[in-house]
Simulated scan of single mutants.
Amino acid sequence: MAMAAATAEGEPMMDINTTPLIDVMLVLLIMFIITIPIQTHAVKLDLPVDSKDAPPPIVDPVKNKVTIDPAGTIFWNGSAIDLIRLRQYLDITQQMNPVPELHLQPDPQARYVVVDEVLAVTKRANVEKMGFVGNEAYAGAF
C-alpha cells in the first residue's frame, strides 16, 4: 500500500484500509466457485451399433442397379420392388448430393411394356444420371 503523506502525529488517518475488504472478497469468490455445480457440456445421443449382420442400405450413394427379369419382376439392387417403391427410391436418390448413377439392366427376354413403365417412372422422377448396362446381350436379339 502506498504510504500516506506526512500527517501530524495525533490526527486520524483518512484512508480506508482495503486489505480486509480484499480478503473477504477473495474468500467469498472461492466459496462461490466451490458451490457452483460442475457444468457438463455433453450431448446425449443414441448412436447406432455397428453390426456385421445389418443389411446394406437400400439406396447406394454411388450407383443403384435396376434389373428386370423375364417374368417382369423389377429388382432394385437385388430386392424385388413395384413401380411405386421404385419411384420412392428414385426420389430419394435425386435428393442426395452427389446424385448416384442409375444402371438399368433389363433381361433380353423381359417384356417391353414393363421396361417402358420403368423408363416412364425414371423420366417422371427427373433422373439424369442413368445408363443401360448389358447391351451386349441384345446383339443376337435382332
Results as ranks from 00 to 15, higher is better:
residue 104 L to C: 05
residue 37 P to D: 01
residue 76 W to D: 01
residue 86 L to Y: 05
residue 82 D to A: 10
residue 8 A to I: 06
residue 134 G to H: 01
residue 129 K to V: 13
residue 134 G to T: 15
residue 136 E to I: 04
residue 80 A to D: 03
residue 48 P to D: 12
residue 79 S to C: 10
residue 47 L to H: 13
residue 90 L to K: 06
residue 136 E to H: 05
residue 105 Q to G: 04
residue 18 T to F: 09
residue 28 L to H: 06
residue 18 T to A: 06
residue 123 K to E: 09
residue 137 A to L: 15
residue 116 D to Y: 02
residue 21 L to A: 14
residue 112 Y to H: 14
residue 108 P to I: 04
residue 25 M to E: 14
residue 68 I to S: 03
residue 139 A to Y: 02
residue 72 G to T: 15
residue 127 V to T: 02
residue 106 P to K: 00
residue 72 G to K: 05
residue 29 L to P: 01
residue 72 G to P: 03
residue 71 A to L: 11
residue 69 D to H: 08
residue 90 L to M: 06
residue 128 E to K: 12
residue 16 I to M: 10
residue 13 M to T: 13
residue 89 Y to D: 08
residue 87 R to A: 03
residue 16 I to N: 08
residue 117 E to W: 03
residue 34 I to W: 10
residue 8 A to D: 10
residue 101 E to H: 05
residue 101 E to F: 11
residue 4 A to P: 12
residue 14 M to G: 03
residue 120 A to K: 14
residue 63 K to E: 07
residue 22 I to D: 06
residue 24 V to T: 13
residue 92 I to E: 02
residue 79 S to I: 13
residue 51 S to R: 04
residue 114 V to D: 02
residue 133 V to W: 13
residue 47 L to Y: 09
residue 55 P to R: 07
residue 97 N to I: 14
residue 122 T to C: 14
residue 59 V to R: 11
residue 26 L to W: 08
residue 5 A to Q: 07
residue 91 D to F: 09
residue 85 R to M: 00
residue 129 K to G: 13
residue 99 V to P: 02
residue 42 A to N: 13
residue 48 P to Y: 04
residue 105 Q to L: 00
residue 101 E to N: 13
residue 92 I to A: 02
residue 95 Q to C: 12
